[in-house]
Write a protein that binds this DNA or RNA. Structure first.
Lengths: 153, 153
DNA sequence: TCTGAAACGCACTGCCC
DNA sequence: GGGCAGTGCGTTTCAGA
């Protein structure tokens, strides 16, 4: 399962926080030269441990201050209906995350919006247009207490 | 509110997908030279539109296959109790996200785990140890339908 | 697996339009 | 606002231990 030693884990921890850190800086922190750091990073990328490098954008500054979580349950649970629902959700740009859940509700959606009015329009004219939706329940984030893309290791 | 023209937005879209794209590559895509791209990126960083650059790590490969959403409601809603709860949550490494929510439940937590057994231990020996927790309700992601750090613009 | 050195390309600066 | 040229630095490669 894990082909990672402590050096690899430290590199992952650092790059999860700041992917602009240079191989040289990381090398200094670990008392190594750039070559091994470079090779380890390349290995972590090619083996899939690092999926990608991204810029994290401030949602408030680009006028997407509303974060909603939307619980959805389907009316029919035939495989074809579920597939259809999932395919339509994937193509909605407002939906940042969607999970098929265990328990009473089928799906949990994280949705970014400019305003509650736009959220209303989204629910009414986009989500509700998707066939087979039974229950639909929305809650809103009042404040972000913690939000990171980092995984602990 | 928005000091972004279409060029800026395109740059943000690109860097949200792949922050390793060079200014040269972006310049070619936009039929510009590197100088304006470089300056725009620096501006986007200094103005806070780009919060940071991070590596996205594969949670399965580092043995964190379980994603749980945990709904928490507090017993007392005094300001001091809420502050205390939030401060304790921030320091839990297993908690990747925590939002103060509108509606019946107070907080929504996203939690990464190695196994359901570890999740049990986490709930029992860490979360429940936090004072003032009333309702505590967990659901698990069976499958990720969609998950991106990108915001649309 | 690490060190060290060499080659290349990009980030970054300054000056031009 | 964008283009062009130069410098330093980081990335990338490779020989050797």
């Amino acid at each position: 399962m894990e082909g990672l030693d402590n050096t690899d884990k430290t590199i992952l921890r650092i790059l999860q926080r700041d992917s602009k850190k240079t191989a040289k800086e990381i090398a200094n922190l670990l008392n190594l030269t750039v070559s091994p750091i470079y090779e380890r990073i390349k290995r972590l990328e090619s083996k899939g441990y690092i999926k990608k490098y991204v810029a994290i954008v401030n949602n408030k500054l680009i006028d997407l201050p509303i974060t909603a979580y939307c619980q959805v349950s389907l009316k029919s649970h035939d495989e074809s209906f579920i597939d259809k629902f999932e395919n339509q959700i994937i193509n909605l740009k407002e939906v940042q995350e969607c999970y098929h859940m265990a328990g009473q509700i089928d799906f949990l959606l994280k949705i970014n919006m400019r305003s509650l009015e736009e959220y209303h329009d989204f629910i009414r004219y986009k989500l509700s247009k998707i066939d087979n939706i039974g229950i639909l329940n929305s809650t809103f984030s009042l404040k972000v207490i913690k939000h990171t893309s980092e995984l602990y290791l």
